[in-house]
Nucleic acid binder design. Sequence first.
DNA 1: GGAATGATGTACT
DNA 2: GTACATCATTCCG
Length: 198
Amino acid sequence: MSIVSQHPGAQYAWLTAGALEVAPALLGWTLVTNHGSDITSGYIVETEAYLGELDPASHAFRGRSARTAPMFLSGGHVYSYLSYGIHTCFNLVTGPKNSPQAVLVRALEPVGGLGIMAARRGITNPKLLTSGPGRLAQALGITRADSGTSLGSTIMLLPPPPGFEPASVTTGPRIGISAAKDKPWRFHVTGNEFVSRS
DNA sequence: GGAATGATGTACT
DNA sequence: GTACATCATTCCG
């Protein structure tokens, strides 16, 4: 049985909460992508919250543009963009419609489709497959074409498995930004070896 | 081990 | 023209 069919009723309504609530709550959820027969998945172990118009580090800080329009959709949509000309970064839009907020998924612990991920990444070391926003997007086959789509068909989010113990969460400043560096809006599973930085 | 750097597209000044 | 929510490689110690 595939990991997808084990969780046929994934619910996304809770993603309309604020990014600061959703970002830590996503830790331990499973992100799944399904491209034809290529199914890849991983536990979310690192996230960052971006608070839209209130947050100078957010792409939505200066308002809506063609690129950032998906951030203005309701929670449960996808916002993906090209970073540094090379890497795709994957975000989950949160909050109600026209309240631009998003959670950047920065690292996964690989669960399913390791061979597919390795082929997409061109490497085999499991620790380097999904430990970073550009890396995980490549491993899961997420591109800018997914920006503005909603969760459910190609990209899915599944609750933590039964019996999953809530992990200890470490909070700290976000990575790779120049504005609002003091805001502790990065969350990761304490001690997990797949986070992009400890 | 860590620091520096090139790659390369898009948005915005 | 400059900055950028990054990564892999190269250099130095």
